[in-house]
Design a protein around this nucleic acid. Structure first.
Lengths: 112, 112
DNA sequence: TTGACAAACCTCGGTCATCTATGTATATTA
DNA sequence: TAATATACATAGATGACCGAGGTTTGTCAA
């Protein structure tokens, strides 16, 4: 199913950091991996991801290193930092709170 | 806790329609009701809500009628239409899919 | 009675996240 | 050798939400 893009807003960084918390990855790989893990619900555009990665790096949440692939191509591998892990944990809590509260409103668990 | 506003994007209309699916309400009331039901996680601004209500009306998802309150003030009560209920159901499905897929990525339920 | 405040509505301009479109370069495959 | 996939990048457009301002009406205390 197609998801309204506006829902994505704000959760992209959470997902990117989540991916990186498992292993270092390069940009293009994150896009395909994100699509795979979400059953192609999220098909992040390059124009979205690369600026995000640059921002994360500038904020010290990830580091980059260039590494030559078996193919001979040079890729930029991103690795999450300690600070990045901390931010990730915060964002996870924020995400859980957010969804919980939306569900409270939508499902009407609170009295009328 | 404070939630990053960007997360809100896209879920606001879902929540507004959800509120209206229970009973007709006026704008100001929706703001206080939304805050109450979400434990003040969502404090929707008037500058956000009123334009949304106008759009919903233009799209035929809600209807408006003016009604005098006990206080003597005239309020604009919004009522969800059949079309609005249909859209609401669609948005609920979309919301559930969205959160499910984000969790799949974040919690890593899918193989590495 | 007047001044402050809450209720109730509204709009304009800005911000920020994401997308579209485009560009570059290299490796693979037809 | 031409097309396609890989891999990175940026500039401008879009769109949701907010901030800041404004208006009117009712209530309540000084």
């Amino acid at each position: 199913m197609k998801i309204d893009k506006s829902l994505m807003t704000g959760s992209t960084t959470l997902m990117v950091l989540s991916l990186l918390s498992r292993k270092e990855m390069y940009g293009y790989q994150m896009i395909t991996e994100l699509a795979r893990r979400s059953d192609h619900t999220f098909e992040l555009k390059e124009g979205t991801l690369y600026p995000i990665l640059h921002t994360l790096e500038a904020d010290g949440l990830v580091t980059v290193r260039e590494k030559e692939a078996e193919t001979g191509r040079v890729r930029k591998y991103y690795r999450i930092t300690r600070k990045g892990l901390k931010v990730l944990e915060e964002k996870k809590v924020e995400w859980n709170t957010f969804t919980e509260k939306v569900n409270a409103v939508v499902c009407g668990t609170s009295p009328a």
